[in-house]
Design a protein around this nucleic acid. Structure first.
Length: 556
RNA sequence: UGGGGUGUAGCCAAGUUGGUAAGGCAACGGACUCUGACUCCGUCAUUCCUAGGUUCGAGUCCUAGCACCCCAGCCA
């Protein structure tokens, strides 16, 4: 279940191992602590983690914290928590910080300077852009490109010592201003930035850029296969350049895979942040967004997520996965293990007219119909019950197998009842049903052999407990949020029904003891889990599948 | 009009040295059912972006096109 299907990365590794280019496998996941992890990050974690595992190698967690202007310590804590939750253990190779290698990055920069492979450039950001050229025209060499190594070293040391203003100079790799790959047109590898670092404090006023720092981090940690997403493909030649010029004995190699996209949701950190900051969702762990904390609060499990990722596979094709595959994976898992419970989301009172008002009897309901070992529990039955409003229809079509005037239905695990009378309020709304139970038959099959097709869930009004139940739908009404028409914005496609709160819900007594992190199936409606923030609130993980499109317990 | 990456069903995605298109999701039929769930059966690419070519035989090889994605941050 946790394995992977064949993929090009493992093909590469198999070849490396077979040819003796590598003797082992070491991977890493390098998040920048500038936001929360989401299911797209989970794909990167899963690929790196399972690859290391498959080959008996190690897996590192490394915070890629080279830009103090964007990073925050609170995110390193949330990332660590999410990863522990996801993989269920410590990263086997350890936890590191890219910033811990700043000294080495600095020393290697000096080495590049002395080799004539890097120079201090005084061009402003705007000038550098002009000199860079365009996609179709080569760039021009910087007038500072031919400074001597000694002059460059002097300048770079003074950059480090804080003698120059932010942005006034950069250290650049001396590669090729006419390269068709723009990444290679003398990229900046160090910038001056007077921003305190979350771990280094005020030690530095120059910080290395990703393209320069990343290969060094990988090499220092002994990473063999550096697996990242497709948008870094253009940067790979620079990655290799850094490794080669510094002269690492055992060069790591980078391989790229397509990032994850899912229909009707958003994966960009930038937009997730916007949703959180504008209050369109309720924090980074809002159950409607695909952050790991949100998914966790929603009731998703690491194994369901990993299974999902495994089924999606690894490729280099831009793709957008149907969110229903994700839902399938959590249903598949929860169906097998979740205990069945009764909850009435939208209660409608039912009075059993031929049942004594002072009587209570108990019916046994299985905790899991397919697993007798899960046992059963007793549900109290009394004259006044609650059933689901949507389980009654006054003018019902033929295929409606639930309660209707004059019709019979089975109360799950208990009596067959017939609807005799419908009581409405002044506005015509149905407020109560008066039914009669087949007391002879009890919870057995009818002796006369008549068929009762429908089975609905119910709760004794006197015994039911109150709860708030939150139902969720897709956050976006558009499948691909990456292709929003011109002139429109993400916000134009937010589903107004993404959260629906049922405050008047009723639940069976056993549910009052449910703990956050436990999932159960509310019979006939879906899988739910207690909210981790508010006691007495349940979050819907996913609705039960509704193959005929008529099982309307959710919404209208 | 530069460079890089990618094109297999509605959506993901396998396809060994060319040998006659896996699997999953979705959908649609049907069986079963005291959850309209689950489970179970069945249907779902004469065709692999297009056009040529090589071959007894091509998704796999060759040639030429086309489409989509990424790159012009002192972001990652």
């Amino acid at each position: 279940m946790s394995g992977t299907i064949p993929n090009f990365i493992h093909d590469v590794i198999d070849a490396d191992l077979a040819a003796g280019r590598e003797t082992h496998v070491h991977t890493r996941f390098p998040p920048e602590p500038n936001g929360c992890l989401h299911i797209g990050s989970a794909k990167a974690i899963w690929i790196n983690y399972t690859t290391a595992k498959k080959y008996g190698g190690k897996f590192n967690l490394r915070y890629d914290d080279t830009n103090p202007a964007k990073e925050d310590d609170s995110f390193v804590r949330s990332i660590e928590e999410d990863i522990r939750w996801l993989i269920g253990e410590e990263p086997s190779g350890g936890i590191f910080f890219g910033s811990d290698y700043f000294d080495q990055c600095y020393e290697y920069a000096l080495k590049l300077i002395r080799q004539g492979d890097a120079y201090v450039c005084d061009l402003s950001a705007d000038e550098m852009r002009e000199y860079r050229g365009t996609l179709t025209e080569p760039g021009k060499e910087s007038p500072y490109r031919n400074r001597t190594p000694a002059e460059n070293e002097d300048l770079f040391v003074r950059m480090k010592n804080g003698e120059f203003a932010d942005g006034s100079r950069t250290l650049r790799a001396k590669i090729d201003m006419s390269s068709p790959n723009i990444v290679l047109r003398d990229p900046a590898i160090y910038r001056i930035l007077r921003v305190p670092h979350h771990r280094q404090g005020d030690k530095w006023c120059i910080y290395p850029l990703y393209d320069y720092a990343h290969p060094i981090q990988d090499a220092i940690e002994g990473i063999t296969h550096s697996l990242c997403s497709l948008e870094f493909t253009n940067n790979r030649p620079l990655y290799d350049w850094v490794i080669e010029k510094i002269g690492f004995a055992h060069p790591p190699h980078q391989y790229e895979f397509a990032r994850l996209n899912i229909t009707n949701t958003v994966m960009s950190k930038r937009y997730l942040r916007k949703l959180v900051e504008t209050g369109l969702v309720d924090g980074w762990d809002d159950p409607r967004i695909p952050t790991l904390s949100g998914l966790r609060r929603r009731g998703y499990t690491p194994s369901a997520l990993f299974n999902f990722l495994r089924k999606v596979g690894i490729s280099k094709v831009y793709s957008i996965v149907d969110i229903r595959l994700l839902e399938h994976c959590i249903r598949e898992e929860l169906n097998a293990v979740a205990l069945r419970r009764v909850a009435v989301l939208e209660p409608l009172k039912v009075v059993i007219t031929n049942y004594p008002g002072d009587k209570t009897e108990y019916f046994s309901l299985p905790n899991h119909p397919e697993n007798p070992e899960a046992g059963s529990r007793q549900l109290p039955f009394t004259r006044e019950l609650y059933v689901e409003q949507s389980d009654f229809m006054e003018d019902a079509p033929n295929k409606f197998f639930r309660l209707k005037p004059g019709g019979e239905v089975r109360l799950m695990g208990a009596y067959i009842v017939r609807c005799d009378e419908v009581i409405k309020d002044d506005s015509g709304k149905v407020v109560e049903l008066r039914c009669s139970a087949d007391l002879e038959t009890g919870n057995a099959m009818p002796a006369d052999g008549r068929k009762v097709r429908g089975t609905i869930h119910w709760l004794s009004a006197a015994h039911a407990k109150d709860a708030e139940i939150r139902l969720y739908e897709n956050l976006f009404t558009i499948e691909d949020v990456n292709s929003i028409p011109e002139g429109k914005d993400y916000d134009d496609y937010i589903n107004p029904n993404s959260l629906q709160v049922r405050k008047e819900a009723k639940i069976e007594a056993a549910l009052t003891e449910a703990q956050a992190g436990q999932s159960c199936q509310f019979v006939r409606t879906g899988y739910f889990t207690p909210d981790s923030h508010t006691p007495g609130v349940f979050n819907q993980t996913v609705a039960l599948k509704d193959s005929k499109g008529t099982f309307i317990v959710n919404g209208q």
